[in-house]
Each structure stands twice: as C-alpha cells, then as structure tokens.
Design a protein around this nucleic acid. Structure first.
Lengths: 339, 339
DNA sequence: CTGTTAGCGCATTCAG
DNA sequence: CTGAATGCGCTAACAG
C-alpha cells in the first residue's frame, strides 16, 4: 500500500529509527542525513501512521470536541475557532455531535474517546456523572459553557451580568410587563438558563415589578421554540410589552411569531436577545454580545497550554467580556399597551 | 493506566484473542464465556484502543470530513447530518476545517488523513491536484458540492435549474434590470457559481434582456460580501430593480445594504436568494430551497455503503430536488423604477 | 470453541 | 551521530 517508515529507511540507506528522529525534528541527526531522508520521504509521499505512532508513544495528537449540535450557529462558531487553534498546533479534531439523548448517553457510557485523544473540549455542560466519566479519561479537560467545574478549565461569560443588562435596558426605557423566553428544557445541571432567569427576577424585583409566571415560556434554545414561546406569551391574559429572549435564535423565533400576529416590533412589543448572532445585525436585533469565536479560541489555547506544561498552574475559570448592543427591536412602550 | 485487553483476559481467565472475539461480537465464543468477558470488561471500564486495533486490522472506523468553514450555516448543517449517520454506524468523525488558503494547502500536501481514515467526505470542491491527492489515499470518496468528479460519489443539486427558477421568477413578475451577486471569488474549479451565472445569462437572453456587466458583483458567499456587492450594484449608473443572490447569506447581506441605503424591499428592490437558510423564513426571503441536511445524510449513507460493499456498483452522481419558495422580498417593480 | 503465534508501524531505550 | 532490539495493544491466522 502506502510507504512505511521502513521503505523510507531502505531508500535512504539508513535505519528506521533515524528516519523517525529525522522527520520529527529530533536532535542527533546530521543535517546531511536529515535532508536526504526528508527528500526521500517527500518523494515517496510518506506520512507516519498515526495509529502506529500513537501506539508507540502514547500521544495521539488528537483533541476530542464534544458538541450538542454543530448545525447551530453558536456551536459552529465556537468549533470553528477552536479547530483553527488546534490544527495550527498540529492537532487533529475528533468531532462528537451529541444532538439526541441517545447519542449523548451512548457517548458517555462507551466513551469512544478513551485512548484516542490527548484532551477533550466540551461545548456542552456535562452533568455530574458525565463529568466524572470525562475526568476518568485522565486527560486535560476544557469547556466553553456553564460555570466552574472541578477538573475543567472553563471559559465563559458572566451570564448573570449579561441578562441583567438586557432586562435592565427594558426597564430603563419604561417597560413594566416584561416577558422572558428561556432555554431551560435541558437537564438541571445546565446552569446558563438558571443564571439568566435569576438575573431577570432580580432586576424585576429591584425595579419593584411583581413577577408574573404567565410571562415566562420555554423556547428550547431554538428558532421554532422561540416562536412557540412567543405565541404562548401573546396568549396570556395580559401579554408583555417587551420580551427578553435568552438567545438570539429564540429572539428571531419570537420576531417571526410577532410578525405572524401582525404585531409591530418595537412599536407593539420590544425584543432583546442574547449572543449577537451574525444575523442579529441584519435583523436589527438588540442583544447582549458575547465573544463566541473568542471563547472557543481561548479554551483551545488553554487546553494546549495544559498539554505543553502539565506541571504548571492553570486557570480554572476565565470570564470573557460582554456588551449590550442596541439596535432596532427595542423602544419605549406605547402610551397605552396593546389591548 | 487504563485497562488493556490483557487485564481483561487475565481477570476473566481466558486469552486475549478470546476477549477480542467476544467483545466484537464474532462467532466462535460460547455464550457463557462471552457474558463473563462482557461483565469483566464493563467492570474494568475497558475500551479497546483504537490505535492498536487500527494498526492490527487496518481499519480505523473513522471518516475524515473536510469542510471549508464549519461556522457557516450551510456547512454546519451538512456536517451535522452526516455526522449523525456516521456515528450511528459506529464511525468517528475527524474534522478538517480548511478556512484559509494556508490550512487548505497544508492539508492537501501533508494529507494528515493518510492511514487515519476509512473514507473521506469533502464539503469543498477540490481542484485537480487536490482530487488526485485524495484519490491517492485509496479510500472511498464522497462530496456534497460541485459536479461529477472521477473517483467521487457526488450528491448535489441541479444548480443550473435552481438559478434559472430564481431569475425566471424575477423576469415573470416584470423585472428587466436584474442584478446578480455571485460567489465566484474562489478557484476556477468551483463550478457552482459558474453554473448559476450561466443560468442567469441564459434566462436574461431568453427574455430578450441585454446583459449589463455593471449589474454583476462578487459577494464571496458571505454576509459581508453580499453587503459590499449590493452597495456596488447600487452605485451603478442605472441600479437594478431586482437582485439574484447566489446564496441566502449574501442575500441577507444585500438586505442589510438596502436598509442602510433606506431602500424598501421589495418596493424599491426585489431580492431572491439560494439555499433556504433556516433564517430565510424569519426574514421573509424568497429563495431557492435545497435539502441541505438531506445532502449530507445521503452522502454519508452512500459512503458507508461503499465501505460495506466495496465490490458493488456505486452511483457517481446523485441529484436531490430543489424548489422555489416565494416569500416577501420579491414583488413586481414599481411603475417607474427608482430614479 | 479456545489458546498460541505473529505481526501491524512506529518510538524508544540502549549500545556502539 | 546512528543502528539494533524491544514493546505499545490489538487482530488475524493457525493449531488444537
């Protein structure tokens, strides 16, 4: 089949170990021999078998990346940035897309990454058991979601602060009936929606607004879910004049629902999202911007650093900055609300 | 470290080969022994090392997927669908994100997938040299983009037909000054924009409309590119009353540019896209819908089939259906055009 | 049905 | 600076 290290050794008139040393840039090979080997290898189209070198060295030069759903803009963007960092450092990426409960369960019970990767980057929040499973791999772990977790380097944002800015903005421009579309359908350990909800409740309380449970709906972090949730909210006896959606995709779903109900944004209802999706600007969506690609790149970098300097001290939790972006989907409520 | 096959063998009181056979469901192991081995393996948390088994068997149970840009909706969606098919069949996915010319070049010269994968799915169109490089791997190849290529199983759509529908729609509702935002900045072998442009020219000719080169601009298949391109078109001495964008993302960029110029869509300018992006509906974009996830899943399935039955006959080119989706960004031109 | 014997292709000792 | 030996963990023949 394809050339092996012995083929190269024979053609270059040296031993296999010399080829191995030469090609990996190890010291102890004369320049002349190194050049000759490089030339022969190139000519034969030789590439070391990753399986064989992993087996021999114990290193795989592969990073496992676990994603809840690659197709979603947020995760695709994080993955994109992380992959660039990894590949620039010579690592390959093994992708695990865990969209359904079954695939997720299978992944964590079978752990196909065992003995296959040097580190794992998780774009989903593992529960206790899943965390333990990952820790049992004995490799560096990082994550770009959720709060601090033992054994993980977590790169994230201050969800509480972000959500507070969003809701406070609505309060500041005069809204009192403020709804929320949350993304809480996941397991309990998924802290993001919990944090954002707490911020919502806090800001309402702080503004002296009584909390109305009929103003909350679950949007499942999807466009369709956001649309359904908004429809629910509109069906309330006293619908909201403003809505905080915990993600831009849900906010866009809400906008669609509003359009279907022939309600004007922001005249009838204001909408604020979270993320600063690449299309938020096209739509004119007011939102809380977070560095999505930045978090992926940073997490990847921290992971590589752990691989390079296993002994050094490594941060457990890094927080990246967020900022409020005002666009055209929010405005003061009408003198008298709809209805 | 972690348990090896010998640990399991010893604990179960059998030989390593029996463990190997038992765990892989091969025949020739008594049920009693099989159960015992399974129990011991589970208890020890044993998973076979992929490196070792690949080295011994020659199979990797890994598929290499080459993507130009994971963060883009189109590719993320294709990848998502393909990954699901692969993982359901027990294959892992090695992801190569080739966003820049450098990473792309490095990938095709070093071919890190050599000896690492059982098959390759390409979501980008390789040029002649790149195709040859992939073919040299000696594994089944598939692609979801571009036209038929030797050595590849290509799953795609009829780009010509799709583009014709889009432009014809604009002609049918009365437009005569029809611009196009293309995605042609890539290398020449990228046939998609070429096909779509030919369709554009054909439909214009068929309608007796003279082609005006100032009505064409390159949008680079990105949102920003689409915006720039639209801005260019608006600067023409006689700007278009309708625009065909070769992708929804460019169309969205065009919409943004139009908004910035305070032009109404579709009153002042009609816009039609291509893809049926998940947000096209939110925005009300008229577009040519293609089965994006469907193409990824189908390509993955065909690849697996080639792996299962290497000897059988395999299709070289599969075309999936497309359809025109009319929404709110297209309408007949004003009685007298803008200006 | 099960154990024994050989490698798979490479990295890593250890000599020289 | 270089080569020879050894083993990484597993699978695939071959015996029994």
């Amino acid at each position: 089949m394809t050339a092996s290290i012995n083929d190269v050794a024979r053609a270059a008139g040296v031993s296999a170990s010399t080829v191995s040393r030469a090609l990996r840039g190890r010291t102890g090979v004369s320049d002349e021999v190194r050049d000759r080997i490089a030339a022969v290898a190139a000519q034969l189209g030789y590439t070391a078998s990753r399986s064989a070198s992993s087996l021999a060295s114990g290193r795989t030069f592969t990073i496992g990346v676990v994603v809840p759903y690659v197709g979603r803009w947020f995760f695709g963007t994080v993955l994109d940035a992380a992959e660039q960092v990894f590949s620039a450092a010579g690592y390959d990426v093994l992708l695990y897309n865990l969209g359904t409960p079954e695939t997720r369960k299978r992944f964590f019970t079978k752990l196909p990454v065992r003995k296959r990767v040097d580190a794992v980057l998780s774009l989903l929040i593992p529960d206790e058991g899943e965390s333990a499973a990952l820790r049992s791999l004995g490799v560096p772990l990082a994550s770009t979601v959720g709060g601090a977790r033992p054994g993980f380097t977590v790169v994230g944002i201050d969800d509480r602060l972000g959500a507070e800015s969003a809701v406070r903005h609505l309060v500041n421009i005069g809204h009192r009936r403020i709804g929320m579309i949350s993304g809480s359908s996941g397991p309990l350990h998924w802290t993001t929606p919990v944090e954002r909800r707490r911020a919502y409740l806090d800001v309402l309380a702080e503004a002296g607004i009584e909390h109305d449970p009929t103003l909350e709906a679950d949007g499942d972090y999807t466009l369709e879910g956001g649309e359904r949730a908004m429809t629910e909210l509109l069906a309330a006896s006293r619908p909201p004049t403003a809505v905080f959606a915990q993600s831009d995709e849900m906010a866009m779903g809400a906008l669609r629902a509003l359009r279907r109900h022939r309600l004007k944004v922001p005249d009838d209802v204001s909408v604020v999202g979270f993320d600063d999706h690449e299309l938020a600007d096209v739509i004119g969506l007011t939102t809380v911007a977070q560095p999505v690609a930045g978090q992926g790149a940073e997490a990847a970098r921290l992971l590589l650093r752990q691989l390079d300097e296993p002994a050094a001290e490594h941060p457990g939790h890094v927080r990246m900055p967020i900022r409020m972006v005002l666009r055209e989907t929010t405005a003061p409520p009408r003198p008298r609300g709809p209805q």
